[in-house]
Every structure is written in structure tokens, then in C-alpha cells.
Design a protein around this nucleic acid. Structure first.
Lengths: 205, 205, 205, 205
DNA sequence: CATGAATGAGCGTTCATTCAT
DNA sequence: TATGAATGAACGCTCATTCAT
């Protein structure tokens, strides 16, 4: 099938199976972590034999890479849609924060799966399999949003790089809270983060 | 050996061996990640046979748990010493942030090891092996520091829980940056974080 | 399909498909060796799905057996034609050698495929799948040619069995040389073999 | 153990285990062929678990390579000893033939194992794992023996290369006969081969 | 105390085969 | 006829653990 002929387009049912397997992989990763998500476990959740996974994906790497790519794409689309029409940098940043945190909450398993993959998948040489060699694009994007605000005078004189790191940290930590901390109040957290960032970016009066 | 007779105190040489093995485990975890840190690899780094590790620790779980405990204890001590004598909550928080980030920078391998363990070590049932069942003590401690400031009127009306989560996220993300992002400027980041938190906690005028 | 209804003769198109698949099997065996010649690889070369191979052949064994049979038959025909009209045993033997070696050179892939199959195909019990249980017919044939020469006094008192084995060895080894030894000179080798055999068979003076 | 520390010399018991495993590998290869000689089968014959084989050899490749090397070394030593003191090229060649054929007969399983390995073991890229890149050293050695005879005028004007190929073919084919052809008479075959080669190399009178 | 030897389960992957469509 | 989907067993290999010495 797929692994044999690289150029043939995928049929509908083929895509459906791939999606199903990816869904099961995401669930396994979210529940059992990277090392618990063997092909056997993923296949078990999909109700198929181990071979089926190898049949629809060239290997575990392709499966994990596809999951990574898909979730990233969906997250990017959700965030882009949320801040698409805004001009005011402050509104953009607010939208960025809210979109990130709500995507997190609504796609918790996906996010956890992505974190497991990105942090654990390794090449045979021991290096992280899905580490982007140069600049972290997610961080760079956020930094550019901040810089745009500074350039237009809408934001004060913050260190845009440090602020980007700080904000990403504040966002990323939320997924950890959403799991296993029933007391975590995402709405309150979102409001607080929006306030803090708003305050931090406000130009000196 | 040790794991069989729980009550006998450990001799000095025993503790030395345990410490040596834990040090090697930390190095392996920091360099190779969780899955690359097999007992064989740890034993190799310690220059001993695999059996020795099993001899001084009841199993891999006990070794990892001990590493986790030790690093936590050292970090807690470093932070407590830094903020020990301060009374002003703002000074306490500032000390907390600086102590955390400098401990991070000066004990990077230990921190990375702890992150690897906490995020990856699992029980047979798939649940995180070292997840504390109830309240996260680290988070609770920070929250209590913030609450103290609120109670004395020194801080404004922030949501102390959300702020604690935010701050922890901002701190924890720094270790990821310190590794593999050569452009990361810890001093600038520390200043920025201190400023942001100071601003956020300042009472409304 | 075919393997279910043993008595129905094969249609023309059926035979064509079988021949095509066998051709692709030969190419795969010659290029990739026995273990590299999976049904998937053979089907890929034939531009059909894996199922087709199973459809036209009862199993991999039947396919390989058929390849073996076909190449043997073609080789036998080529040799028979070459020595068909000769009466003098010396001329017959010379023709046999020349026919064998030239068939080898002109059907190298086929020969290599046959060697791979004969040496590697095994029954579930581990025994060679295509080993003829009794007397090797190829060897017996050559021996009979030699014996005929002895009986008519045209050849000397050689051990016809040993000579047959020797000659077959000298022929069979040539295919190995033709592949991967670019310096191998088949013409020179043929002349040399013909001379050696002629000398060996010449009656004592 | 061995796979962990590359420089430590092997203990006696370690060598004994390795030798035992190699012996079982040779038996499996001789009886079941390359594809039938899985680590599981070899371990089963050795009466140990699968892991033991991986414990004493870095991988299947090392095991097979070691078998290849050992048998080659033993064969080379046996042949060298047999022809060591001879000066007359004709005597050397005669010794070479007799030594080869008797080593074959007395180490049949080893030879068959070597043939299986050399013909089937492949690298991941599909190329033969143990193919020597340049000239076949076995063939080159024999050719040099023949050339020496020609150079001293002891042999006639044969094509030394072709004769070497012919003789190797005649030798190699014997192992195939020794297995499964109970009628094969090695002594008669050796005499015949010696005679044929002697005749072929004799200078024109 | 420490080792080296051995186990057994599980890993990702390959492959001949079967079968509904 | 021919396909693509699915299976299940076997493969080489890794690893935490156990144990006699």
C-alpha cells in the first residue's frame, strides 16, 4: 500500500484509517506517555493488529511525525483565525493568549501527545527526532508579535525575547495543570495572564 | 542487601556509592534523556557493573525517586537560604525568582534530570510514577508567599493561585531555554521576570 | 482460482501473467538475492498488487518451483540442441561444455535466480525445498555422456562419476565469476576447460 | 559485558560460551540454512535463552562474522601446514588439493555454514555483508601457486587465472556432494582431481 | 560487596498468506 | 480478475531484573 507506492494519492478509507490510528496514538500518548505508547498499545486501542499500523504508516516515526504536524497545523489555524483581523498589537497579543489557552483546554490530549513526542522521540544517534535545528518557530512568532507592538510604540520597552519566553512558559504550563489539578481554573488563569501581560507591555506613562 | 533490611542505617561507603550512582544517573538523564538512561548506561558511567545499581537501589524506580528527592531538597534549601531573612513579601518574591533561576542555571543537569524523571517515569499501570497525589507542594509554597503579600496589603488583588502557576511556568521554561538555545540570556530573563511580577503584584494606586 | 481447480487448463492470458511474474521474480532474485525477493518486491516489479502473485501461484513455493523448472527446461533444450547431432563423444562433451557456459553467460539472471532458489528455498522442516530426493539428473546425464565415451573406447579410463562432478563444479562456478568479477574472461575459461577435459579424457597412448 | 566494554580481554568462560554459541550457529546454518538460523534457533540449540546470544555477541553480524573468520583461519592453517615445506610446485598443488578436500570432508558443517553466511548475509543496503571488495583472496592465492609453477617452467602454458577458477569450482562443488549424495566417493574424487590437474599443468613435451 | 551470567518480556519491523469486495 | 486490507508469526534487539559465586 502506501509504503510501497509513494506517489499514489491516498483514498478516503485510507485517510480514515490513518486518522483513526493517529487518534488512538494521541490517546495512548496522553494517557500512558511516550514509552507506554507502543505500536501494540496503539493497535490495541484501534482494535486492529500491530501490522496494520505498519501498513498505514512507513514506521513509528512517520506516525508520530504526522501527529506532530497535524496538531501543530490545527493549533496554528485556530490561533491565526482568532487574531486574524486584529490590528492593534495589544488586541493581537490578547487574542494570542486566549486562543492558545482555549485550544489547549479543548485539545488537551493532542497537546499532551505533542509534548510527549517532541520531548522523547529520538533518532538512532540519540538526538531529539523532531527538534527544529535553528530558531524555535513558535517562540519566534510570538517574539515578532511583541516586537511589532514595540515598533509602533503601542508597547513599552520590554525585552521582547524574554517576554516571549515568559509567555510561552506561562501558556505551556497550563496543560500540566489541566491534567490532574481539578482545582485549576482556566478562565481565571487566562484573565490573570492577559492582565499581567497587558500590564507588562503597557508603555511607561 | 539494603533493600532487604529496611531498618539498618546506611554506612558511609554505602551512601557514597549511592551518591556516585545518582550523580551518574543525573548526567545520563541530562545528556541522553529518559529512554537513553538505561541501568547499563548509568553503570557504565559509574564504572561499575549493572548489578551494583540493583544492589544499592531496590530498583530503577528507587534510584530515580531518590534523584528526584535529592534535587528537590537541594533546590528547596538553596531557595530557603536566599529568602530566609526577608520580611517584605516583595523582597521575598524577588528572592524566590532569583534563587530559582540561579539554581536552575547552576544545576542545569540536575534540573534536566528531574524534568526527565517527573515527566517520563511511569508505574506499570501507565500513570506518572512520581506525581504527588494531592496538592503540588512547590506550587502551594509559592502561592502561600503570594497570599502573604496580599494579606499584608503589600500586593494588589491578584489571583494568587493563577499567579503561582504563571510564575512556575515562567521559571520552569527557563531550563528548556538554557539547553539548546545559546542565545538565551538568563540575566535579562531574570530581570524581565522580576519586573513583570513586580508590576503585576503592585497594589492599585 | 487456479490452485483450486487443478484440472482446468490455463488460458493464454493466465500463462502470460504467470510468465511476467516469473520474469520479475528472476530479476529480483538475481539482483537482491533470495531474502530480498519478497512477494511485495516481485509484485512491485510486475506493477501489480501482492495479491496477484498469490492468485496466479498457489504460494511462493510454487512460483519459485516454476522458475526453477522453466530455467532448467530452457537450459536443457539449449544444450540438447547444441549437441543433438554429434556422434563423437569428444565432440559431444565439447559441445556440452560450450553450450553450458554460453547459456550461463546469456542467461545470467536466470542462472543466478536458480542458484538462489535451489540453495535457499526450504521446507518448514528446514530441508532444502527443491532438492531432488534421488540421483541428481543433471549429474547423471553428464555421467552418461562420459560413460558412453568410455564404452566406445573414445575416452580413457577415467572415473566417470568423479569427472562428472568435477566438470559440473567447473561449470557452476562460472556464474559466480560472471557476476562481480569484471576481470573474468569467459572465452578463455571455456577454452581452458575444454582443453583440460579433453586432456583428461584422452585415452592413454 | 563484552558489548559494553570493548577493550577488556575475554575470560576463559566467556570464550567457551562464545565458542559453544558459534558451534550451535554452525550446526544450525549447516542443517537449516541461513534463513532458518535465527538467534532463537541458535539459542535453542545452545540450551540458553535468546538474550544470551546478544549478550556474548554485539549482534548477529558479529556472530556470523566470527564464524566466518574462525573457519577461514582454521582452513588456512590446515592447508598451510599441509603444503608448508614443499618446494616443487606440482607437489604444492597436489597438497593444496588434498588439504582442501580433506578439510572439507572433516569440517563439512563448518564449510556449509561459511557458504551460507557468505552467500546470504546482507548489509541493510542489500549488498553482501561479507564480500571482500577487491580480488577474491582465496582465488588469488591459488592463482599465485599456479603462476609460480609456470614461472619456474614446472608447469605448462596454462591460463593460471582460468585454472584457478576451475580448480576452486571443482573443490567447492565437493561439499555439495558430501551432503546428500551418499554415493559420493571423496577419495576417488580427490585422486581424479589430482590427476586431472596434474595432466593439465604438465608442460608440453 | 561486587560481578558476570542469564532470563523473559517487550520493542519496532517484515512478510507470506487470506479474504471480502 | 485484481485489489487493498488485515493478520499473525517470526525476526533481531534492548532492558530491568535476578542470582550464584
Amino acid at each position: 500500500m502506501r509504503s510501497d507506492e509513494m506517489d499514489r494519492p491516498r483514498t478516503f478509507t485510507e485517510e480514515a484509517r490513518r486518522a483513526q490510528i493517529m487518534r488512538c496514538a494521541i490517546e495512548a500518548l496522553a494517557e500512558l506517555g511516550f514509552s507506554g505508547s507502543s505500536l501494540a498499545e496503539i493497535a490495541r486501542r484501534a482494535g486492529v493488529s500491530k501490522g496494520v499500523v505498519s501498513y498505514y504508516f512507513a514506521g513509528k516515526d512517520e506516525l508520530l511525525g504526522q501527529v506532530l504536524f497535524d496538531v501543530y497545523a490545527r493549533a496554528g489555524a485556530a490561533i491565526a483565525e482568532r487574531i486574524g483581523h486584529a490590528n492593534d498589537p495589544a488586541v493581537v497579543i490578547r487574542g494570542y493568549l486566549e486562543a492558545n489557552l482555549s485550544f489547549l483546554a479543548e485539545n488537551l490530549a493532542d497537546i499532551r501527545a505533542v509534548v510527549e513526542i517532541a520531548a522523547n522521540a529520538r533518532s538512532p544517534d540519540g538526538s531529539l527526532r523532531f527538534a527544529v535545528p535553528g530558531e524555535d518557530p513558535v517562540l519566534a512568532h510570538l517574539q515578532s508579535l511583541l516586537q511589532a507592538g514595540k515598533d509602533t510604540g503601542r508597547f513599552g520597552e520590554v525585552d521582547s525575547r524574554s517576554m516571549a519566553v515568559l509567555i510561552r512558559g506561562a501558556i505551556d504550563t497550563a496543560s500540566g495543570r489541566l491534567v490532574g489539578d481539578p482545582a485549576f481554573d482556566l478562565e481565571a488563569y487566562t484573565r490573570q495572564l492577559v492582565d499581567v501581560v497587558d500590564l507588562a507591555l503597557r508603555p511607561a506613562t
